[in-house]
Computed example of a mutant assay.
Amino acid sequence: MTHPLRQVIGILVVLAGIGFAAWLVFAAPDDWDGAMDVVRIALGSAALGIVGLGARLVFPDEAGSR
Rank of each mutant, 00 (worst) to 15 (best):
V58Y: 06
F20S: 14
V51A: 06
G52N: 04
D30W: 02
V39P: 03
P60M: 02
L12T: 10
G19T: 05
Q7F: 02
L43Y: 13
L48V: 14
L5Q: 14
R40G: 11
I50D: 03
F59I: 09
R56L: 15
R56I: 12
G52L: 11
L12E: 09
A46L: 14
V14N: 03
S65L: 03
I18S: 06
D31W: 09
F26G: 12
A21E: 05
G34D: 00
V58I: 15
G64S: 04
A16W: 10
V38T: 15
V51W: 08
L57Y: 12
S45Y: 00
T2Q: 08
V14F: 04
A21F: 08
V39Q: 11
I11E: 07
E62R: 13
R6G: 00
R66I: 04
G34A: 07
F20N: 09
M36C: 12
H3E: 13
G49S: 10
D30R: 08
P60C: 03
I41G: 02
L48D: 10
F20T: 02
L15N: 11
R56K: 14
A16S: 12
T2K: 11
S45M: 14
S65C: 02
D33A: 13
A22T: 13
I11R: 08
G34Y: 04
R66M: 02
S65H: 01
F26C: 12
R40E: 09
P4V: 02
A47G: 14
L57Q: 14
L12A: 15
A28Q: 01
S65K: 09
L5Y: 06
R6E: 10
G54L: 06
W23F: 15
A42L: 14
I18M: 13
A63N: 11
V38A: 15
L15V: 12
A55F: 08
L12N: 10
Q7E: 12
G52R: 04
A47E: 00
H3V: 10
A47V: 04
A28D: 06
D31E: 13
R6W: 00
G64P: 01
A42V: 13
I18L: 15
L5V: 07
S45V: 13
G54I: 04
A46I: 08
A22K: 11
T2F: 07
A16H: 03
G34R: 02
V8M: 07
V25K: 08
A22Y: 15
